[in-house]
Design a protein around this nucleic acid. Structure first.
Lengths: 336, 336
DNA sequence: ATGAAAGCGCTAACAC
DNA sequence: GTGTTAGCGCTTTCAT
C-alpha cells in the first residue's frame, strides 16, 4: 500500500521504488521489472498528499473563470482539463462570479497555496489592474486585454475579430450599428476592445458611430438582453444591425426580436461572439466568431508547464495570440 | 509561514496554534487572541498537503459527471461547489464522457485516493451494475435509477415527472406520442425510466404506445436530434407530440421542425427535461421539467459530510428524492 | 545502481 | 489549558 511495503515485497529500498515510479534513469532492468510486478501485485497507488508535501509540488493547477453557466467557459474548462491531463495535472475550477475581489484572491495564490499554477480569465479587473507586485509567479492570463501585463498571456485578437464581423455586416449594406454589452470605457476590457474593432471598421467605411445605439448590460447573459432590445426598438430610427457581446446575449436578443415581430436578418441583422453550439440552433442561426479554444487551452497549460520546470521561473513573459474564424449564419445573411 | 513560526511569534507551541485554527474548545481567550494576531501578522496559510497527510482527510471531493458541455451538468457542478464550500470542501470535477470504464474507475476510488468522497452521476452504467463489492465507502449516487444500490442515493422521481408531462400533453388533446432518446431497454436508466412514465400515462388514458414513434439517439445532444426528427416526419402518420430526453435534444428538435416548416405546437408539441436556461429562449420556448438542482447538490454533499464524520461510515444507505416542477411554455400550449 | 536517513508541515496522543 | 512527541508517505541529499 505504501512505497515501503512495495519495497519490502520487491526486496529493495523505498528509494528504488520511487525511482521506478519516476522513470529515473539509473535502475537496472531486472530491478525495475521486479518492482513493477510488486507495484501491481499490491495494487499500489501514490498518496498525492505525501508526494506534494515532500516535493513542494501539488499536481494541481487552478482555472479561474467567471462561471460554468456560460457554455463558453464550460467548454474552455473541458479543454483545459484535457490539456492538463497530458502533464499529469489535475484542474481545480474556481468560479470568480466576475468578482474583482475573487479574481484578485486567485492571483494572490488562491487560498492555501495548493496549486502549481493559475490560469485566470479576468472579467472584472483589467490587465492594468494586475500590477506586477500582485503577479503570482506561475500565472497565465487569458484574455483580450492589452500587452501591458507582466505575466504570461494567451489572448485572442478580439479587435480584429470585431472588425471582421462589422466589415461583414457593412458588406451586407448595414449602416445603423447598435451594440449590446459593448461600450467604450467599460469596466471589462472585453467590452471595450470589441468597441474598438467596431469603430475601426465603421471609421474606415465612413459610417458614424451613434451613441444612442450603444447599450451596456449589467451582465452578459440572455435575460439581460431583452430589455435593451426594447430600448433599441423604441428609438425613432431603430438600428439595422446589432453586435452582441457574446452568443448568450445574441440568443436573448434574437428571442426578443422574434417576440416583437422583427424579422432577422431582413429588418435587423444580429451577430455575436464565442460560437456556442446553441448558436447553430437559434431562430435564425446566429452569426458568430469562433475561437480556437483547444489551442487556447493547450497554450495556457503549456506556459504553466514551461514555468514549472527547473529554471522556468526565469523565462520572460510570453504573449500568444490564438486564431479565430467568422462563422456566417442566417442571422446576418438571408438564405437565398 | 509555518505553524511553528507562528507559534514562535506568539510564544506558544505549534499544538496551540493548531488548536486555534480548529476552534478547539480549550484555548484561553488571551492565548487565542495572541495567536490570531500572529496568524495575521505573519500572513499564515495552511499547507493543505501537510494537513491531508497528517489527518488522512484531503479536503477534496470528486464530482463525476458525463461532461460540462451539458448546461445541466454545468449548473449542477456550480451548485455542488457552493454546497461543498459550506463544509470547507474543494470540488474536483471529473468528466466521465459517459464512459462506463471511467465511471467504474471513479467508483473504485478515482486514481490516487485523494478525495474524501465521490458524487457520481452514472450515465453508462446502471445502478444494478454498481454491485456492492465495487461500492466505495463515501459514494453518493445521483440518478433516476432504482433503489437497489447499496450506496447513498439522491434521486429525482423521473417516472412521475415523465408521467406529468405526458398527462399535460394528453390534456392538450395529443394522441400520437413520439420520443427522442427515450426507449425501453435503453443502456441508460434515465431513458428507460422516462419511458416508463410515458407508458403509465398513456395506459391510464387508453392511448397506445406505438413503437415506430420511439427513436433512440447515439448521444442526447442537439445535433443528434435532427435526423431522428426527419425520420418521424417521414412516417405516413407523423406524431403530434414529441417527448425529448432532455432540453438539448428538445432544442435540436425544435430547430429542425422549424426548418421543415412544421408549426410548434399546432402541428406537433415538444417537451423536454432539465429546464435549461436556453429553453426560455428557444422558438417557441420549450416546455420542460425543472429539477431542484440546488437541493440535489446540497443533499449529495450533506450525505458525504455525514459519512465523513466519526461513526459516519456505519450509517445505513439513504435514498433521497428531490422535487421537480413542470414548466409549461409555448412548445406545448399556444399563446392565446 | 541502490540504500540510509532526514525532513516536508501538519495532526493527534498523551503528558504535564 | 498547553507543551512534547511521534509519525503520516513521500522525495531528496548524500553515502556506498
Amino acid at each position: 500500500m505504501r512505497q515501503s511495503d512495495v519495497a519490502a515485497h520487491a526486496g529493495v529500498s523505498a528509494k528504488t521504488v520511487s525511482n521506478v515510479l519516476h522513470d529515473h534513469p539509473y535502475v537496472s532492468a531486472d530491478t525495475r521489472a521486479r518492482v513493477e510486478a510488486s507495484l501491481v501485485a499490491l495494487g499500489y497507488r501514490v498518496n498525492l498528499s505525501a508526494r506534494a508535501l515532500a516535493s513542494d509540488r501539488t499536481g494541481f493547477i487552478a482555472l479561474a473563470i467567471p462561471g460554468l453557466d456560460n457554455p463558453y467557459y464550460a467548454q474552455l474548462a473541458g479543454h483545459v482539463m484535457d490539456a492538463a491531463a497530458e502533464h499529469d495535472w489535475i484542474v481545480l475550477i474556481e468560479q470568480t462570479r466576475s468578482s474583482a475581489d475573487l479574481e484578485r484572491a486567485v492571483v494572490h495564490g488562491g487560498g492555501a497555496r495548493l496549486v502549481d499554477g493559475v490560469i485566470l480569465q479576468p472579467d472584472s479587473i483589467s490587465q492594468a489592474d494586475l500590477s506586477d507586485r500582485f503577479a503570482h509567479q506561475n500565472l497565465v492570463l487569458i484574455g483580450e486585454g492589452g500587452a501591458t501585463a507582466s505575466s504570461d498571456h494567451v489572448t485572442t485578437d478580439v479587435v480584429a475579430a470585431a472588425r471582421e464581423v462589422v466589415e461583414h455586416l457593412l458588406a451586407q449594406g448595414r449602416t445603423r450599428f447598435a451594440t449590446l454589452g459593448i461600450q467604450p470605457h467599460d469596466r471589462a476590457d472585453a467590452s471595450e476592445l470589441r468597441y474598438r474593432g467596431l469603430c475601426q471598421a465603421l471609421d474606415a467605411a465612413g459610417v458614424p458611430v451613434r451613441s444612442e445605439y450603444l447599450k451596456g448590460l449589467p451582465r452578459s447573459r440572455r435575460p439581460e438582453a431583452a430589455e435593451a432590445v426594447d430600448q433599441l426598438l423604441a428609438l425613432p430610427e431603430p438600428p439595422d444591425a446589432i453586435l452582441c457581446f457574446n452568443d448568450l446575449v445574441g440568443s436573448g436578443a434574437l428571442a426578443r426580436l422574434r417576440e416583437r415581430g422583427v424579422d432577422v436578418p431582413t429588418d435587423i441583422a444580429v451577430a455575436g461572439f464565442d460560437d456556442n453550439e446553441e448558436s447553430r440552433f437559434t431562430a435564425p442561426p446566429l452569426t458568430s466568431v469562433s475561437w480556437d479554444l483547444e489551442e487556447l487551452a493547450r497554450r495556457c497549460v503549456g506556459r504553466l508547464f514551461a514555468r514549472s520546470r527547473p529554471d522556468g521561473a526565469d523565462l520572460p513573459p510570453v504573449r500568444t495570440v490564438i486564431g479565430h474564424r467568422l462563422v456566417v449564419r442566417e442571422s446576418t445573411v438571408s438564405r437565398s
